[in-house]
């Protein structure tokens, strides 16, 4: 078994128009910048993919990564908890112009919906958002005397993931708080595509240290010294 592939271009080649794509990260931490930029490269060359639904905690920052994906006009809908950042202009302008749809989800509900999608649980109840605008239209039920809101699973066609170390079976570790949504999204996508700073042979990660077991991963591409959104923005970078 060998899930490794040679290039980020090859890694994202199968993502088509209208796909639902989960993208890991919390702000720039754990964001797979190189995979997103490869998707933008393909769009520039072929006009595809477009009309994407993207699931991410945020809505991009500056003009790189997710912000660049939105700026390129590739995203029709965003599912996120916090579409604000130090420089949120790209998303804000498109949203206020009615050019991008937003589904706003409380952060813990977003995480649990993704987990549920990966775990085969179609719906669950949470106290979060009860009595607020974000619970409107959702079923409510009482358990042990308290009201809870029903939420549904969230699944994707593809997940773009940033890992620290991967082995050839797709077992993954992450770097510090770059873990965030990444392990959940690995579970919830039909095809999970991982960029890892280092790819090692099977056995190169202590089984006690594996965070995401390879069963949740389909493709792994090595991206040594991956870019960080925060540093790109401080340098005033734009993509392309």
């Amino acid at each position: 078994m060998d899930k490794t592939i040679e290039s980020v271009a090859e890694a994202v080649a199968g993502i088509g128009d209208g796909a639902v794509v989960m993208i890991g990260g919390f702000g720039g931490s754990g964001a797979p910048i190189e995979l997103m930029h490869a998707l933008i490269d393909r769009h520039r060359q072929t006009g595809s993919p477009k009309g994407l639904t993207v699931v991410n905690n945020n809505a991009g920052n500056g003009h790189v990564g997710l912000a660049a994906l939105i700026e390129a006009g590739m995203v029709a809908k965003l599912v996120c908890s916090f579409p604000r950042s130090a420089d949120p202009r790209v998303f804000t302008e498109k949203y206020l112009a009615g050019e991008i749809e937003l589904e706003l989800v409380p952060q813990g509900t977003l995480a649990e919906r993704i987990r549920a999608g990966g775990a085969g649980i179609p719906a669950f109840y949470t106290p979060t958002s009860y009595g607020t605008q974000l619970a409107q239209g959702k079923p409510v039920a009482e358990f042990e005397g308290r009201p809870y809101v029903q939420e549904r699973w969230l699944k994707a066609d593809f997940a773009l993931i940033k890992a620290h170390v991967a082995d050839r079976h797709g077992n993954l570790t992450y770097n510090k708080a770059a873990r965030n949504f990444n392990p959940l999204m690995c579970m919830a996508a039909r095809e999970t595509i991982v960029q890892a700073a280092q790819v090692v042979p099977a056995g190169g990660i202590d089984p006690e240290h594996v965070v995401t077991p390879g069963i949740f991963v389909n493709r792994v591409v090595e991206v040594p010294e991956p870019q960080q959104e925060e540093l790109l923005n401080r340098a005033g970078a734009t993509y392309p």
Binding site: F82, T92, V105, Q107, G108, T109
Partner: peptide
């Protein structure tokens, strides 16, 4: 979390943190 209808709504973890 919100001062009304104008602008971009954002909630983050606020609605989760008030429970539990």
């Amino acid at each position: 979390w919100s001062v009304g209808a104008r602008g971009v709504p954002a909630v983050g973890g606020a609605m989760d943190l008030v429970h539990g």
